[in-house]
Structure formats: structure tokens, C-alpha cells
């Protein structure tokens, strides 16, 4: 070997990265480049598509499906907020109070994954059915009008998304909270902070990496989701995922479908950057080390 020991030492970590890099190239970079070129093609399903650098596909995709884009972000955002509100107390309880029940609770959180995503969503059709128990109780307390319904509304779609993605919020929050040394809280109360202040000034800031991770893990896939809108909503509740799905699989308009995907990806990337700025990237990286 023409390499010295120290040179080989430096090369070894890179070798560990090779399988991952190959995976990324074959299953991410190449398809991505391929779809980028597809998005710039013109033609029709009969005659086939060819690359014509048709950037106007993007502008028309935005103007034609502005509504679905907005709805995607609205639904995904609402579901993320709902999940955060539900998951934080749950993760807090599991991390600090559950004791010997902790592992059982963790199992229960991931238990829905043992069942098919579509089946889980279909069962929400029953839960939210017009003459079902839930809707009747909501009518009793006046939250739903006597002739009103929940199924086939935006509420149903948001509820479905929130339900389906809840574990992705709970788990990172749990991990973040569980890692916080309880002595920090003791130190805070020692320094005249009430329990509430100690939570606000110590626990919450230290849980930010978990909040960030959980929000992204819910929001990003929820933006592209089409199952909940398809099963719990109507075309009036369709999200951008439903449009992409129908363009790809039904209309076979590949360039528009690809363009829509790239637009979604770009908006989400910009959104993540803004969100991490909001939570403080310095805090994020430092709290994570």
C-alpha cells in the first residue's frame, strides 16, 4: 500500500460513508435530476414527452393549484399545532412521571404503526360518521349544527392527519425531554424559580430541539399527504398531494406533477430555514451537543 498509516486513518471514516452516499445518489439524486428534467418537458401521454425547457409549466402549476397549496400548508400547520399541544404533556408525563409505565406507554404510542395507514384512516370514517357517537355528542353540545357533519370537511382531514402523525411528534419530544437533567430544574427552583418558572426558563428552552424535530417530522410529510384528504374529505378538501397523485397516475401529466413536487419541496425548504431562525439555530445546535 502506498498510503501511510495516518493517511489510511483519515480515509476510513469516508469509507464508512460510501454505502450511504451510493444510496443517496441512486435513490435520491438521480431520480431528483430525472424529475427535474421531466418537469421541463412538454408533450402528451400518447406521443410521449420531450425536454423543451418549458419553465411555464411551473408558473401555470402555481396559478392553477394555488388553492391546494395553501390548503396543504393550512391543514399540515393546523395538524402540527394540534399534535404539539397533545404530544407535549404526554411526552412530559412519559419522561418524568410514568416510572415503570414508561415503556408500556412508548409501545402504545407506536402501536398504531402495526396497522396499515389506509386502514387506520378508513376507521376514522366510522369515527366521524354522520350518525356516529362522536358527531352526535358534538351535536348535543352544539359544536356541530343539527344538520351539520364532520366527515367530508376540512376538520375531518386535519383530525386524520393529526391522528396519523402524532407519534412523530411524541417520540422526538420524549427523547428531548428525557435527556434534560432533572438537576437543572432543581437548580432553577434553588435559585428562586417556582415550578412554572423553572419549566418556562429551563425545561422548555432545553426541549426546543425536540419541538423542532417533531414539528418537521409532522409538517413535512403532512404537506405532501393525500390519503387523509382522499378518504376523509371531498375534492373540495384536496391537498397538493392529491393533485400530484392524480396528475401522475390518472391524467399522466408527468411534467405538471413533477413541477408541483419541486414547488412544494422549495417552499418547505425555505420554511424550514425560517422556522429554525425563529427558534434560534444557535440554541438548536448547542442544545443538541
Amino acid at each position: 500500500m502506498g498510503l501511510s498509516l495516518s493517511q489510511r486513518r483519515r480515509l476510513i471514516p469516508w469509507m464508512f460513508a460510501i454505502p450511504g452516499l451510493l444510496w443517496l445518489i441512486v435513490f435520491f439524486a438521480i431520480p431528483l435530476a430525472n424529475q427535474a428534467s421531466v418537469s421541463l418537458m412538454t408533450g402528451d401521454p400518447e406521443a410521449g414527452y420531450s425536454l423543451t425547457w418549458a419553465f411555464d409549466t411551473y408558473t401555470s402549476a402555481i396559478s392553477d393549484y394555488k388553492e391546494q397549496f395553501l390548503r396543504s400548508f393550512l391543514y399540515a400547520g393546523a395538524a402540527t399545532v394540534i399534535d404539539l399541544v397533545i404530544a407535549f404533556p404526554l411526552a412530559y408525563f412519559m419522561a418524568y412521571k410514568a416510572g415503570r409505565w414508561r415503556n408500556l406507554m412508548l409501545l402504545l404510542v407506536v402501536l398504531p404503526f402495526f396497522m396499515s395507514y389506509v386502514l387506520r384512516t378508513v376507521s376514522w370514517q366510522l369515527i366521524l360518521a354522520d350518525n356516529g357517537w362522536v358527531v352526535e355528542r358534538l351535536r348535543d353540545v352544539g359544536l356541530v349544527a343539527d344538520d351539520g357533519r364532520v366527515l367530508a370537511t376540512g376538520t375531518a382531514v386535519i383530525a386524520g392527519i393529526a391522528y396519523n402523525f402524532l407519534p412523530f411528534m411524541v417520540l422526538p419530544l420524549y427523547v428531548a425531554l428525557e435527556r434534560i437533567d432533572r438537576r437543572f430544574v432543581e437548580a432553577a427552583t434553588d435559585l428562586y424559580a417556582s415550578r412554572l418558572t423553572a419549566f418556562r426558563k429551563v425545561t422548555l428552552p432545553l426541549a426546543i430541539p425536540g419541538i423542532f424535530a417533531g414539528s418537521l417530522l409532522v409538517f413535512i410529510p403532512a404537506c405532501g399527504d393525500f390519503v387523509n384528504a382522499a378518504l376523509l374529505g371531498t375534492p373540495r378538501q384536496y391537498m397538493i398531494g392529491n393533485v400530484v397523485q392524480s396528475k401522475f397516475l390518472n391524467v399522466l401529466d408527468y411534467p405538471t406533477a413533477a413541477a408541483l413536487s419541486f414547488i412544494l419541496m422549495t417552499i418547505i425548504l425555505v420554511g424550514i430555514v425560517l422556522y429554525s431562525r425563529l427558534l434560534g439555530t444557535r440554541n438548536l445546535t448547542e442544545a443538541a451537543t
Binding site: 438537576r183 437543572f184 434553588d190
Partner: peptide, 13 residues
């Protein structure tokens, strides 16, 4: 009274 903890427990953030 105030405590100096064995682990110091300085707030990392």
C-alpha cells in the same frame, strides 16, 4: 439558601 451542586447543574442554554 442556595446550593452548589456536585454536577454544577449550570443551565446549558
Amino acid at each position: 439558601v442556595n446550593t452548589v451542586f456536585q454536577s454544577y447543574a449550570l443551565f446549558p442554554h
